[in-house]
Amino acid sequence: MRELFSMWRYTQMITAFVVSAGLYAALLFVFAALPIWIIPGVTAVRPGNAIPPFTSLIFGPAAAWGSAVGNLIGFDILGGALTIGSIGGFIGNFFLGLVPYKIWHRVFREEPHCRTLSSLLKYEFVILVHSGVVALIIPYWTELVGFLPFTFLAFIIFFNELISAGIIAPVLMALVYPRAKRVGWLWTDVMKGYQYTPTQVKSHHKLGTLLVFIAGVVGVWVTMFVGVGLGQPLMQFAPVFAGAPLLTVGGVFILIFAIGMALLSKD
């Protein structure tokens, strides 16, 4: 995870950050003329959501910061949605840009060109995981600080992210990745010493990916079910729809996610 901080020493990575954040923010504006609101001021079906998993695999750590700042500027600040929920939005969008490249450069030897079925399926797997992670983190924060209920928001974010990114991002990768590789835009072309794809897949990286998958995909649904009252008597909780039971269960999955990311970060 050192690359997240050392990238600020490279002018080209700072430019990549500006492109990632600017593109994300600009697309929120371009498609704002054709909005499909789900919760006004909170979330809408956004084609721009395909940008983080796409820029993540091109620009690596610059895209993690770029997604976080791009959402903060394009949606929260210029879109008039800056609240305490924006802190969760910043963190969630940071992982939106971090998880795809981190998983790929640790466990997949194939390039993410999406021009073969196996490359496409791997990319869709990464998108599924990153959708789950963001659908766990942002609503958990909004529930914690009394901004919006977890269950409602998690359901919307999960499908919004999955649909937008799942359809558009593979098309973008298939069209742009070969060109980006040819002209040296990939983050490992700038930050020497990092491998874009692993020569050897280590077992703790596989375990880390599995834990991130469990936290993001399984965890978000389990927490949503708890949020509508399912299974609470088993856990000796009073039947409430928000608050302690949900935060406890969601907290366990966030801990699992943190352990998974720590394993993925370990060389």
Binding site: L27, I36, A50, I163, I168, L172, V176
Partner: peptide, 17 residues
Amino acid sequence: VFSRMKNSAAIIVPLFI
């Protein structure tokens, strides 16, 4: 929603380039 998403790639790719 699906066709709108697919067609929006025609905006995003040239914008990125």
